[in-house]
């Protein structure tokens, strides 16, 4: 096994405790002096930095190219419209109307390549930011943050993932769901920890996440959070699928209260530091 492994913490269902597991696992690893990096890929609502005393190092803007059409140079040939796969160029030949629908544009550049009259230039549309933080000596947290109003956080997540330092253990706090933002995050990982809860809702979404991971050939294990509530279906499912149960976290008001204050349970309770350290070892064994 190489020195630096990449572990994604994902869930399918939102609110199961991805950030709780990510931040505490990160804290437990770095507490032992091992180098580690945490990338908050939940770009629609990143919050990992709230749990650490961080110093902002630098920030960069992630942009997408959007075509700008000069109607004076446009010959209304319609080639750009033909090339566009996303109906992002509204075009009426007879009425001589052409308009870029910014919201629909994927920034692929096909229209610029199609134009023969030099009528298309490109502008940069801000999508979000990637910010580097230091949570202590050589402890880097990278945050992907999408600007409100954009339709997808994927480009911002991809840019944040480029900062992954392969020499150390990298933790990826994945976005909820099982669509493109999830897929892009877990694709960058060697192993995915699926955080779930023992409720029918939790199990239903866990199944979707497992299916998505199988489709892209990725291994995973599960952490059952809020154990003690709900029913036993999740355990039966994990057993039937042969997915290792890496850790069980009880449904405990104290944990929720501590978390809501922005505390890390691995800081306030030594037993949990040991538990998360054990989780890290269990993940290593499963790799």
């Amino acid at each position: 096994m190489r020195a630096g492994m990449t572990i994604a913490i994902a869930s399918g269902k939102g609110g199961t405790g991805k950030t709780f597991v990510s931040t505490n696992l990160f804290n437990a690893i770095v507490g032992e002096g091992d180098g580690a990096m945490l990338i908050d890929c939940d770009a629609e609502e990143p919050d990992d930095t709230l749990f650490f005393n961080v110093k902002r190092v630098c920030s960069r803007e992630v942009t997408q190219k959007i075509p700008v059409i000069d109607a004076g140079k446009c010959t209304f040939c319609g080639r750009c419209r033909e090339y566009c796969n996303y109906n992002a160029i509204f075009f009426l030949k007879e009425a001589r109307r052409i308009k870029v629908m910014d919201d629909l544009c994927h920034g692929c550049g096909a229209c610029s390549a199609a134009c023969r009259s030099g009528a298309i230039s490109e502008k940069e549309k801000p999508l979000g930011t990637v910010t580097d933080y230091l949570a202590g000596e050589n402890l880097k947290i990278v945050e992907a943050r999408m600007h409100p109003g954009n339709k997808s956080p994927v480009e911002v997540i991809r840019e944040a993932l480029k900062e992954a330092d392969t020499a150390v253990t990298v933790l990826l706090d994945a976005p909820p769901g099982t669509s493109c933002p999830f897929v892009n995050t877990v694709s960058a990982a060697d192993f995915t920890v699926l955080v779930t809860e023992p409720t029918p809702f939790g199990v239903a979404d866990l199944k979707q996440a497992v299916k998505a991971l199988k489709n892209i050939g990725k291994r995973c294990g599960a952490v059952v959070n809020k154990a003690g509530m709900g029913d036993g279906e999740v355990y039966a499912y994990l057993k039937a699928e042969g997915i290792p149960l890496l850790m069980s976290i009880p449904f405990d008001r104290n944990i929720a209260e501590s978390c809501s204050k922005g505390e890390l349970i691995t800081d306030t309770d030594g037993r949990w530091k040991a538990e998360f350290r054990k989780l890290f070892e269990t993940i290593r064994e499963n790799l």
Partner: peptide, 19 residues
């Protein structure tokens, strides 16, 4: 014809009816 578009069916349908 705009019905099967993966995205932007609305603008494509406007093009169709306007034309």
């Amino acid at each position: 014809p705009a019905r099967e578009s993966s995205e932007g069916a609305g603008p494509a349908a406007v093009e169709f009816v306007a034309s």
